[in-house]
Amino acid sequence: MSAQPGSQPGGSSAHGSPSATPEPGVTTLAPYSFPHHKLKRRQTQAGKTPLVLVACGSFSPITFLHLRMFEMASDFVRFNTNFEVCAGYLSPVSDAYKKVGLAAGHHRVNMCSRAVEQSTWLMVDPFETVNCDSQGEPKYVPTAQVLRHFDYEINTVLGGIEGTDGKMRKARIALLAGADLVMSMGEPGLWSPTDLDVILGQYGAFIIERSGTDVDEALSTLRQYESNIWVISQVIQNDISSTKVRLFLKKDLSVRYLIPDPAVEYIEEHQLFQDLSQPGKEKATAEEPSKPSTPQPAKC
């Protein structure tokens, strides 16, 4: 299914990069430019390293937990690190991910965009959802490539972040994810060692603890990246998940106060996540999602 060009946030010159040309070697389904309208271009804290947090995931649909992850990470960074958060990005996964319950990319981008509209520092990058292969079909984008994309757009195209002394500095790009993601990274054969070197070795990750997950066990197999992984305790437990929200919607139950109101309104407007056996309901994807032929890394 092709993304709808007119619905992609960041596609206008007001929110996108000076040039709408994608990075070298990238082909997109729709016109694309990198959103940076909320990116803090000049630091306010001397001596700190600028940091950009990136959450990769399905966001089908986005929940309050997804948004809270960013706020928890921001607080943790302020009190426990030598970084200064300059922006947070949600990067919805490509339709090629083929996950059960995955709404079409343009719907997920639009839901996320509406959910962060009032935020002063959170943005949605449609990059993954508009990537395509040589046949013009949606292309799966590995997490390592996503982080390289942000590095390129922020540090190469935009030239980094200006420090309090007026000098331009390279922003640190880091993955923001739940504990289930780092646990999958510790499973043999699921993640490419080369990709792990990029994600955890080159960039690093901020991990939000979740109930029912043993982060210490997962980290025991990732000791070589220990200095590049920051674990954040979830003081107020929140187990809202997109899977549970979809189940509520299929049963025609209310999901208000589980997900942002703008996302609720969008879902109702487009009749997303309804029981596909009911006639006249819009399908979340072009066809029933199938399991990929090869294992794909978990997306938060």
Rank of each mutant, 00 (worst) to 15 (best):
G6T: 02
S7V: 00
P9V: 13
H15I: 00
A20G: 04
P22Y: 06
E23G: 15
P24T: 00
L29R: 02
A30E: 06
P35S: 01
H36G: 02
K40E: 01
R42E: 11
Q43Y: 01
T44Q: 12
Q45M: 08
A46V: 04
A55D: 06
G57D: 04
L65H: 11
M69S: 08
F70W: 07
E71K: 11
D75P: 00
V77K: 03
V77F: 08
R78C: 05
N80I: 06
N82H: 12
L90M: 15
S91C: 15
V93G: 05
S94T: 12
D95G: 10
K98L: 14
G101E: 03
G101K: 10
G101C: 11
A103Y: 04
S113N: 10
L122T: 00
L122Q: 02
D125T: 07
E128V: 03
N131I: 10
Q135Y: 11
P138A: 04
P138I: 07
Y140A: 03
Q145H: 14
R148I: 08
H149C: 09
H149L: 12
H149M: 12
E153R: 11
I154M: 06
G160T: 05
G163A: 14
D165N: 15
D165Q: 05
D165V: 06
I173M: 04
A174K: 08
A174Y: 05
A174T: 04
L175D: 00
V182F: 11
V182Q: 05
V182L: 13
M185E: 01
E187S: 13
E187K: 15
L190K: 12
W191Q: 01
L196H: 07
L200K: 09
G201Y: 06
G212A: 14
T213M: 13
T213Y: 15
D216C: 09
L219I: 11
S220H: 13
T221R: 15
R223G: 00
I229D: 01
W230M: 05
W230A: 06
W230E: 03
W230D: 00
V235C: 03
I236K: 14
D239A: 11
I240A: 02
S241Q: 10
S242W: 09
S242F: 07
S254M: 10
V255N: 04
Y257W: 14
Y257T: 13
I259E: 04
P260Q: 07
P260M: 10
E265R: 11
I267F: 08
I267L: 14
H270P: 08
H270S: 08
F273K: 03
L276Q: 14
Q278L: 15
K281C: 13
K281A: 09
E282F: 14
A286L: 14
P289A: 08
P295K: 13
P297S: 07
K299E: 08
